[in-house]
Design a binder for these strands. Structure first.
Lengths: 238, 238
DNA sequence: CGAGTGGTTGAATTTCTTCAAGGCTCGTGG
DNA sequence: CCACGAGCCTTGAAGAAATTCAACCACTCG
């Protein structure tokens, strides 16, 4: 459906050369072809930046999977999305001095530091692309809000899997076999349900023969079957 | 807390002159002082624009209250926010040819048509303010996502009331007495709960003596009491 | 090898939803 | 002018979906 995700490549960083060829370059990467940027390798569980830290750069995800999250003063936490190659990190802090969210790597990854003011001056299109990316993030968020508040727990899990598959497919990866980089707890947090509920939903999808689960490795056996579980409401309405 | 809302003024349009003096001008209004803009009066229940329509303008809310919503193909609907004076409508469609959401007036109101490309050229600061507004919308959305997925139904209603009160206060209105422009159903939709649950939550808040309800008119009797219901989690954590 | 982390499943409980009924207000037409 | 219907709000009672609590397993890492 929209945001979220994970990646099939276990060693994205190490073999990036290989994948470079196979995986289509993202819009922003093309835009930044001629610019020299500082690249930063981030190990699994490491923090890219935290809420409250002074905002110097926006980051472009080049490889790996990241989660962005908010934490309330009383400790309540919410994962706002899982970010893949081509996604920007820190958009939400534009126009403010500090970052508004935490970003943590779920596996090894590489991010590119974008000095925004400089790029705005250097690249004519840059500002427009940035604006478009911001608007796109809003639409993504709204679509997830819609999903979270109108779908059952099971349907939300289905929506997540289909969205992820689609994103991976767009990146040139297999859309059938995928590796969830996040824990069941993270998934539950993002989808607004308990981790046990995620597990039960996945188990049932497997029992229905729609997916095959092997730990964090998931194989989509019947994409249409999954899709039908979302279209179910439409059938009712008709 | 963040987005949402309603307004105390029953006749905002009719007496706008009066309120002009009382209510602080918004950032964008100051920015646009010297520009001649088309103003559009919108009657209650009328549509400002619909998802799918070609996007020509961004609108600035000058008076009234508006709701923005998404509708899925199968009819599932989600209100993404209630918009007050100073809020921009249509930000989410920047960089795309069509609007992504519906905007409907909840009472009489006035919006200003902003021809973005023109304003970008005319006003040096405009682009930055636009970017800041987009980022701010993202933060708002994320904060509501956090609230919706971590607070109980009752707490969500409390969060809504406090957020609304704060927004009204910033606008120069009373933060104690307020008129909810939206139906209980709209409120429930926004807060991800059934309208009956909204009613029960409000009734209980009244029983606790924290608010007084008279239809859509709500008086906050004990702001601290309400706040304490949100801080409850913090107490547990400690 | 033992501790820790993450995943899975069952059973009891809770919160919220669903269904149902009744009341209030307002506008329209008889 | 009043009657009547529509829309919205409120409350109760029954039901369902998801959470909570608990136990157990598999795997990895010192």
């Amino acid at each position: 459906m929209f945001d979220s995700h994970a990646v099939t490549d276990l060693h994205a960083h190490a073999v990036s050369e290989t994948y470079q060829a196979r995986v289509a370059s993202t819009d922003f990467e093309n835009l930044l072809k001629r610019v020299v940027l500082r690249r930063r390798i981030v190990q699994a569980k490491q923090v890219v930046f935290r809420a409250g830290q002074p905002q110097q750069f926006i980051y472009l995800v080049h490889s790996g999977v990241f989660k962005t999250s908010l934490t309330a003063a009383d400790g309540r936490e919410k994962i706002t999305g899982f970010r893949l190659r081509g996604d920007l990190l820190g958009l939400d802090s534009l126009g403010t001095p500090n970052h508004a969210c935490d970003v943590v790597a779920l596996d090894v990854g590489e991010v590119w530091e974008l000095p925004i003011d400089q790029l705005r001056a250097q690249i004519p299109d840059f500002q427009d692309r940035l604006t478009a990316a911001l608007a796109s993030e809003i639409r993504r968020d709204w679509n997830w809000m819609l999903a979270l508040s109108t779908l059952s727990a099971e349907q939300r899990v289905v929506a997540f899997l289909l969205d992820l598959a689609e994103r991976l497919e767009r990146m040139g990866f297999s859309s059938r076999q995928m590796l969830l980089r996040m824990s069941r707890a993270d998934l539950g947090n993002f989808l607004s349900m308990q981790l046990e509920t995620v597990v039960r939903a996945l188990s049932r999808l497997q029992a229905l023969g729609h997916i095959a689960i092997d730990g964090r490795e998931i194989c989509i056996r019947d994409r249409n079957g999954l899709q039908a579980m979302l279209d179910y409401n439409a059938a009712l309405a008709a």
